[in-house]
Write a protein that binds this DNA or RNA. Structure first.
Length: 599
RNA sequence: GCCUACGUAGCUCAGUUGGCAGAGCACGCCCUUGGUAAGGGCGAGGUCAUGGGUUCAAAUCCCAUCGUAGGCUCCA
C-alpha cells in the first residue's frame, strides 16, 4: 500500500496549506508564519497574528483560497543556500530559526533530529514563497476547491515547536480531499462522532455528571452509570477468580516515603497532588496501586510453591491533570484502575504473560471490541527517564516479544512507549468509527521487586527475586466506559443496559398487568421499568427508544387476555406478541450469555 | 497551565442600539384511555456562572474568579 507521505492527497493537503498561508498573509501582511504540514485528514498552518481570528476572517480566507486555486498557479521549487534563505525570509523570525536548524544539520522543521543532508529549498506559488522541502502538486488547479474546508475547527492555540515555554501561535486547521464526496463523507463522520460523544450521551442517559462544587475532573456516577460500571467490574472479578487472581483492598492515601522508595515520586512529580502533613509525617493521595500491592506481598515469606501470586484490585488513584487537559470521562483527576500485579518466577514469566494476553482477548472480544492492534513499548534510547539496567530492560522486552509472538499477535515495536520501570504491551482498540483508544496494558517489571527487595524461597532453599507483571484490562473504568458509550452510541448490549426492559401499558387500566409482568421479569433478574406516565403508546415508545432500552413490551387488552407481551426492539424491529415466559427465557438467555444480539 | 470562544429554567436554546426575563422539551395538576417514535389545557420553575466596576438603568459594556468547549503540552 502506498504510504500517505507519497500520496497525491498528501501533496494536495501540503499545497493547500501553502495556499492558506498566502491568503492569510494577504489579509495580515504583518503576520509571521511558522510551519504548515499535512496531517491525518487535513493540514494546518501556524501563524503569529496581530489579533484573534473571527469566523468572518476564516470565511474570507477560505473564499480567497478558492480564488487562488482557480487562478492556476504553478508550484516552483528552488534550492537555495542558507544565506540566500535568510535573505528571503529576513522578516520571518520562525523561518530564520528553521534555517539555522537546517544549516547546522540535524534538526528538521518540527525540531526533531534528522540524519538527512541539509538541502534548503523553497516552493513558490503566485506571490507566496515558503521555506519547504515539499513535495507539492505541480499547479494549484490540482486542488479541488469544492473539497476543502477550513471552518471545521475553530482557530486554535499551539506552542511554537510544541514547547510550552515558547511562543503561543494561532493554528488554523483545514481539511482537503480529492473530491467533494470525500469531504462530505468526512464531515458526516465528524458529525457522527459528535453525536456519539460520551459526554452528550452520558447526560442523555443519566450515566454521570460533574459538579462545579465537587470539583472539575471528578465524575459523579449516577445510578444508571453506576449499574453499567458495576456490571463491568463484576464481569471481570468473576473471570479473574476463575483464573486464579485474588482480590486485595488497599487505602487511598499513603506516606510519601512509600513512593520515594518505589521511585515513583520523582518521575510522577508533575502529576501528583501536593503531600499533606499528618502528625508530622507527609502523606499523599495514591497515584498508583503497585507499591501497596507490593507490601501485601512482603507481609509473608513466599515459597516458589506460592507463585505465581496474582493480586487484583479496582484501585482508585488520583493524578493531577492540568485543567486544560480534562475531558469528560477520558481525562479525569480521580479514576479507578482494574489493576492487578502478578508476582512470579523467571520460569513462569512467559506463561503468565501469555495468560494475561488470553484474558485481555477474551474480555475485549466479549464486549465486541474485536478490532484492535498491539504495541510493544520499549525505551526511548535518547531519554534518561528510566530506571534499571540495560540487561534487565532487554530481558523484559524479549519476554514480552516472545509471549506476543507465541500468541500470534500482530504487533509493532515502538520506542518511547515504555513505562519508566519497564517495557509494556498495550492493546489499542478501534471503535465503531475506527478511532483508536489505548485500553489494556501489560508491563514487565524487574525494578520494583529489586527496589523493595522482594523475595521468594526457591527449590534450592535460596532467596530469589520474583518478577512483577503489572496489568490493567479496562485501563480505567472511567475511560473504558467512555469508549463503550462511544462505540455503542449508548445502545449497550442488553446485559450492560441500565434498564433492559420498558413496559408500556396501552392505557391506565393495563398498568396493573404491566406491573405483574415487570415483577415476573424482575424475579428473573432483569432490570425493568414500567412507563405509567400519562401518554400514548407512541410517546412511550419514543421515550424508551431515546433511552436506548433494548426491549420494549407493549401491553394492552389483547396481551392481558392471553398473558402475552408485544415485543419491540430499540432498533424498531417488531417481534410481535409472545407469551411472557417465552420472552423472559429469551431475554435472560441473551443477558446471561452476554450476547450482543437482542433476538 | 497556555491560546481562543462560550456560561440565560433540570435539558436544548431565543433575547434587537443598555430600558419589565422568553420558547420548546422535561416536571406537577386537569382533560383525554389512546396498540408501536411527540394528544390537549393549565401551572410551577431563573440572584441571566460568581464577585466587583461603568451607568439614571446591565443578561447585554469593562475587570477578576469559577466552569465548559476546541487546540497546544501531557496522559489510564
Amino acid at each position: 500500500m502506498e504510504r500517505y507521505q507519497d500520496s497525491k492527497l498528501y501533496r494536495i493537503r501540503h499545497s493547500t496549506a501553502h495556499v492558506m498561508a498566502q491568503a492569510v498573509l494577504e489579509k495580515f501582511p504583518q503576520a509571521k508564519i511558522a510551519i504548515g504540514p499535512p496531517i491525518e485528514d487535513g493540514f494546518y498552518y501556524d501563524f503569529d497574528l496581530p489579533r484573534p481570528l473571527t469566523d468572518e476572517d476564516l470565511a474570507g480566507i477560505e473564499a480567497r483560497m478558492r480564488d487562488i486555486i482557480r487562478e492556476g498557479h504553478d508550484f516552483v521549487r528552488k534550492e537555495v543556500s542558507a544565506d540566500e534563505a535568510r535573505a528571503l525570509f529576513h522578516d520571518q523570525p520562525y523561518k530564520l530559526e528553521l534555517i539555522d536548524g537546517l544549516e547546522r544539520g540535524g534538526v528538521d522543521e518540527y525540531g526533531e533530529k534528522t540524519d538527512e543532508a541539509p538541502v534548503i529549498s523553497t516552493y513558490t506559488q503566485d506571490s507566496f514563497e515558503d521555506l519547504c522541502r515539499g513535495p507539492h502538486v505541480a499547479n494549484t488547479r490540482e486542488i479541488n476547491p469544492d473539497a476543502l474546508s477550513i471552518t471545521f475547527k475553530a482557530p486554535a492555540g499551539a506552542y511554537w515547536r510544541g514547547d510550552e515555554n515558547r511562543e503561543m501561535l494561532t493554528r488554523i486547521y483545514g481539511t482537503a480531499w480529492e473530491t467533494a464526496e470525500q469531504l462530505e463523507e468526512y464531515l458526516a463522520l465528524l458529525e457522527e462522532a459528535r453525536k456519539r460523544d460520551h459526554r452528550v450521551i452520558g447526560q442523555q442517559l443519566g450515566l454521570f455528571t460533574f459538579s462545579q462544587l465537587v470539583g472539575k475532573g471528578l465524575p459523579l456516577w449516577k445510578p444508571n452509570g453506576a449499574i453499567l460500571r458495576d456490571l463491568l467490574e463484576r464481569f471481570l472479578r468473576e473471570v479473574q477468580i476463575e483464573r486464579g487472581y485474588e482480590p486485595v483492598i488497599t487505602p487511598h492515601i499513603a506516606r510519601v516515603a512509600l513512593y520515594e522508595k518505589s521511585g515513583h515520586y520523582p518521575y510522577y512529580k508533575d502529576s501528583q497532588y501536593s503531600p499533606f502533613e499528618v502528625e508530622g509525617d507527609l502523606f499523599m493521595l495514591k497515584p498508583m496501586n503497585c507499591p501497596h500491592h507490593i507490601h501485601v506481598y512482603k507481609d509473608d515469606l513466599h515459597s516458589y510453591r506460592d507463585l505465581p501470586m496474582r493480586m487484583a484490585e479496582f484501585g482508585t488513584v488520583y493524578r493531577y491533570e492540568k485543567s486544560g487537559e480534562l475531558h469528560g470521562l477520558t481525562r479525569v483527576r480521580g479514576f479507578t484502575q482494574d489493576d492487578a500485579h502478578i508476582f512470579c518466577t523467571p520460569e513462569q514469566l512467559e506463561d503468565e504473560f501469555v495468560g494475561v494476553i488470553d484474558l485481555v482477548e477474551s474480555i475485549l472480544n466479549g464486549l465486541g471490541l474485536n478490532d484492535r492492534r498491539a504495541r510493544v513499548g520499549i525505551r526511548d534510547p535518547q531519554s534518561d527517564k528510566y530506571v534499571g539496567s540495560d540487561e534487565v530492560w532487554e530481558q523484559a522486552a524479549q519476554a514480552i516479544i516472545a509471549a506476543a509472538t507465541r500468541k500470534g499477535l500482530d504487533f509493532t515495536v515502538e520506542e518511547g512507549e515504555a513505562a519508566f520501570y519497564g517495557p509494556k504491551l498495550d492493546f489499542i482498540v478501534r471503535d465503531a468509527l475506527k478511532r483508536e483508544w489505548q485500553i489494556s496494558t501489560i508491563q514487565v517489571d524487574y525494578n520494583l521487586p529489586a527496589r523493595f527487595e522482594l523475595e521468594y524461597v526457591g527449590e534450592d532453599n535460596e532467596r530469589h527475586q520474583p518478577i512483577m507483571i503489572h496489568r490493567a484490562l479496562y485501563g480505567s473504568m472511567e475511560r473504558f466506559v467512555a469508549v463503550l458509550i462511544e462505540h455503542y452510541a449508548g445502545a449497550f448490549p442488553a446485559w450492560l443496559a441500565p434498564v433492559q426492559v420498558a413496559l408500556i401499558p396501552v392505557a391506565d387500566r393495563h398498568i396493573a398487568y404491566a406491573q405483574d409482568v415487570a415483577n415476573i421479569l424482575h424475579s428473573k433478574g432483569l432490570r425493568v421499568q414500567v412507563d405509567d406516565s400519562n401518554g400514548r403508546v407512541g410517546g412511550k415508545i419514543r421515550a424508551a427508544t431515546q433511552q436506548k432500552i433494548p426491549w420494549m413490551l407493549v401491553v394492552g387488552d389483547r396481551d392481558a387476555a392471553s398473558s402475552t407481551v408485544s415485543v419491540r426492539l430499540r432498533s424498531g424491529e417488531d417481534l410481535g406478541a409472545q407469551p411472557v415466559l417465552a420472552f423472559a427465557d429469551l431475554a435472560t438467555r441473551l443477558v446471561e450469555s452476554k450476547s450482543l444480539e437482542l433476538a
